[in-house]
């Protein structure tokens, strides 16, 4: 199973890329664990998670082809 993960703002900088395709993760908890292991700098950030353009809370099941976004808040104005 493949999901596409898109990074925004300082998360993209922490990851060093804008998006990544991740295989074989069942839910968002597994995905976050995988991402924070692969890109340790992400773990220091706070961000909201959206699946297919809907923000979620807590752990959610993932399905083939899902698009997940990691959205940090911006302070600037």
């Amino acid at each position: 199973m493949k999901v596409t993960v898109k990074f925004f703002g300082m998360i993209a900088e922490a990851a060093g890329i804008n998006s990544v395709i991740v295989n074989d993760v069942n839910d968002t908890r597994e995905l976050v664990q995988f991402l924070e292991t692969g890109f340790p700098k992400i773990a220091q950030q706070k961000y909201a998670i959206a699946i297919n353009k809907k923000s979620i809370k807590g752990n959610m099941k993932l399905s083939e082809g899902d698009e997940v976004a990691l959205l940090p808040p911006f302070a600037g104005g």
Binding site: M10, Q44, Q45, K46, A48, S55, L71, P72, P73, F74, A75, G76, G77
Partner: peptide, 26 residues
């Protein structure tokens, strides 16, 4: 707060004065 329940530490997020911003964006 429904989206971002609590703030990141300001120290972990730098502001425009520290990292720059493209002028047309605001």
């Amino acid at each position: 707060r429904c989206l971002f329940p609590e703030p990141p530490a300001n120290s972990s997020v730098l502001s425009c004065s520290e990292i720059g911003v493209i002028g047309v964006l605001p």
